[in-house]
Amino acid sequence: MLPSLTLQPIGFLRTRQRVKFQAGHQPEAAEEETNVLELLPECGYEQALQDLAGMDRVWLLWWFHRNDSWRPLVLPPRGPSRRRGLFATRSPHRPNPLGLTAVRLLGVEGGRLLLGPCDLVDGTPVFDLKPYVAAYDAFNDSRAGWIDAVDAELRAPAQFAVVMSAHAETQARWLKESWSVDFSARLTELLARDPSPHRTRRIRRRGSTQSEISCGAWRAVFAVDGTTVTVIALEPAYPMKFLTRPGYDDVPDREAQLAFLARWPAGG
């Protein structure tokens, strides 16, 4: 048994998704989105891309480069707050954090592959890509155990109605128009299904009457009354002292957060 193996990336993904919250747990084929896989130059990879024309999808084999630990039991983001065996999930917290994603191939430009929606964040190392062949790769009648049960629940109508307060609506509109930051759809999707505290969905109590959900570089404060979830305010996920600390220029949406705190000093 080999004590270790060495892998070298063939390229890196470039996308606007800089934090995990922005990347859906599974890519949605219907969404309009273009990502770029930039292959390393001077490695002969451009010739290896020959004959990809006419293929609708490719498999990406990649690395969860932001994870450095694994857990035998994990809490999936979908479904009830119940831990599952790691190997029965697609959790990133794995002994060898390899990811596998089938993604639409939109085109090839030299050493760049134009890809559709995917669940990878910017800078993800990609080790290999292979053609998706429906005759061999799709088994539509296969059972998926607990995932089938959760999917059936998700197909049911949402249990909660999500509304934005006038204050939160003003903040969301300002973020979208001034900084092209818009996480309202994803926020609504998560809260409409289940706004209860959940570690993986990053929802926690905030005092006795409110809760908060982390949305990548942002947070939303909300309250639940029966089946109505009211988003009270939005706020940066990072405090001012962190955003202004030397050497932290690469914080996601840093400039937008600083401008937000200048406009709403209390953070919400």
Rank of each mutant, 00 (worst) to 15 (best):
T34E: 15
A168K: 06
S196M: 10
S81Y: 00
F139G: 01
L190Y: 10
L61S: 11
H198K: 03
D141E: 15
K241D: 15
L40E: 12
R84C: 05
E153W: 08
R83D: 04
P117Q: 04
L258E: 04
Q257I: 06
V126Q: 10
V163W: 02
V74Q: 03
V150Q: 00
G216V: 12
K130C: 03
R245S: 03
P72R: 12
T230Q: 13
V133N: 00
A134M: 08
D128W: 07
G79K: 06
D225S: 11
L100M: 14
L243Q: 07
L37G: 01
D250K: 10
A149Q: 11
R84N: 02
T124P: 02
V231T: 04
R112K: 15
A156F: 02
V121A: 00
L13R: 06
L190K: 05
D249L: 12
Y45T: 02
A156N: 04
L7C: 07
I147M: 12
M164S: 06
R84P: 00
R14D: 03
R254C: 09
R202V: 08
H167Y: 13
S208T: 15
Y132S: 03
A166P: 06
R173A: 15
P265D: 06
E169W: 09
S211V: 04
A237V: 01
C118I: 08
F242A: 14
D253W: 04
I203Y: 05
R16Y: 04
G116M: 09
D151T: 08
L105R: 00
C43L: 14
D249M: 03
F260Y: 13
A30I: 12
S196F: 13
S184M: 09
N35R: 02
R263C: 11
V58A: 02
R94S: 08
F242M: 11
V126S: 04
L39H: 07
V229A: 09
Q159M: 06
E109D: 15
P95F: 04
D225Q: 14
N140W: 11
G11S: 09
D225R: 13
D56K: 07
P41C: 08
R202D: 09
C215V: 13
E153G: 05
D225Y: 01
D56F: 01
V19A: 08
P131S: 10
R66H: 14
L2Q: 10
G111K: 06
V163A: 14
P77D: 05
N96S: 09
S178Y: 05
L115W: 03
G216S: 05
F260I: 12
V231Y: 06
V221P: 00
A138N: 08
P236Y: 07
I213F: 05
L114I: 11
K20I: 00
V36G: 00
L187H: 02
L187T: 08
T101C: 07
M55L: 14
T188H: 09
G54W: 10
V108R: 10
A166R: 13
F139V: 13
H65V: 11
G107F: 06
E28T: 08
P265H: 11
R245I: 01
P95A: 06
R204V: 14
T6V: 14
I203E: 04
I10C: 05
F183Y: 10
Q159R: 15
W59M: 12
E28M: 05
